[in-house]
């Protein structure tokens, strides 16, 4: 990387102070300007990003309602809560949603990107259509899902009724609520990976594909031995950012199922929100947030390692 080089150092013998000061400023221009700019920004960052993380861990060892002056130190009790029902189920649900949504969504996105990579009329329009759900508000759209799945007068049950079929009460069925949340999340999330995969595919030199075709490699063989290896960096990026996003599923659960029925669809973020802002139990909430952070670190590590191992 080229940078502006510092001027040669000339040691003055005796110059008046203002000029010496100006010279020093000029000689150390880089460090001088860098810290003038960075100091306020890092200070802000300390207050609004670093202290909250430290505070989160500190509060997680206490019992505190967020209002009283003194949090009470209770050691690891809040973390122990995560071993008692319903918390293990909530962690399990979160993992189930994250893995299912991430895998299905990535597969669909990869497949659609492969199709869109062909020279087709209207390719840009298809790509736009697949990306548009991502632009909508998760909260508004999740709220809208309720109009479709409402037990009485919901769009789906209106259709069933018009066909003379029995109504389905979606809200009391763990299976249906899980399915609705998964389908909704994939619908809203698949557009980003489609755009990313398509960009990576278009970066592959077409001559490599043509050479393989001349050598008689079929479509599937070309995907396996050319496209997939060349797409690995993008695959890693999509899976790592995807796993971080997928574990943080919130609006879909909070607004579609509220975690019900009986915590069968409850997830960590929803529980942390409820612990803090509904039950005023900041100790348990921050313990959950810390566990969430650790799970995400572990999950990104697992994804990175498995991708590296596969490479051999």
């Amino acid at each position: 990387m080229k940078t502006v080089s510092a001027p040669p150092v000339v040691r003055p013998t005796s110059l008046p102070a203002p000029i010496r000061w100006a010279q020093m400023r000029y000689r150390h221009r880089h460090a001088f300007e860098a810290w003038i700019i960075l100091t306020p920004i890092l200070l802000y960052y300390l207050i609004f990003a670093i202290i909250p993380v430290i505070a989160n861990v500190a509060i997680s060892f206490t019992r505190w309602n967020g209002i009283s002056a003194a949090p009470v130190w209770i050691g690891l009790s809040n973390y122990a809560r995560y071993l008692k029902p319903p918390y293990p189920l909530i962690v399990l649900n979160t993992t189930f949603f994250a893995v299912t949504i991430l895998l299905v969504q990535t597969l669909i996105a990869f497949f659609i990107a492969l199709l869109l990579n062909e020279k087709l009329a209207g390719r840009g329009a298809y790509r736009a259509l697949w990306y548009i759900p991502t632009l909508t508000s998760a909260a508004i759209m999740a709220q809208l899902v309720n109009v479709f799945t409402a037990p009485y007068g919901g769009v789906i049950n209106n259709i069933l009724q018009s066909m003379g079929r029995p109504l389905v009460i979606f809200t009391i069925s763990g299976f249906w609520m899980r399915s609705v949340i998964i389908v909704f999340s994939i619908w809203r999330g698949v557009g980003g990976p489609v755009v990313l995969f398509l960009a990576a595919l278009q970066g592959i030199n077409p001559e490599i594909q043509e050479a393989a075709m001349v050598d008689g490699a079929g479509g599937w063989a070309r995907i396996r031995s050319i496209t997939l290896p060349l797409l690995r960096p993008m695959m890693v990026f999509v899976l790592v950012t995807g796993v971080i996003g997928a574990f943080q599923i919130f609006e879909a659960v909070q607004l579609i199922s509220k975690g019900g029925p009986f915590n069968q669809t409850n997830v960590m973020l929803n529980q942390i929100y409820n612990d803090a802002f509904v039950n005023s139990n900041f100790g348990v909430a921050t313990a959950g947030a810390t566990i969430m952070g650790l799970i995400l670190l572990a999950a990104s590590y697992v994804v990175l390692r498995s991708m590296r191992e596969e490479q051999g």
Partner: peptide, 20 residues
């Protein structure tokens, strides 16, 4: 230090920020 925060999920900030 700046980049490190990209791995930390939002909720880890949000609860203490609310308190702050």
């Amino acid at each position: 230090i700046l980049l490190g925060s990209m791995l930390v999920p939002g909720i880890v900030y949000q609860v203490p920020l609310f308190v702050m």
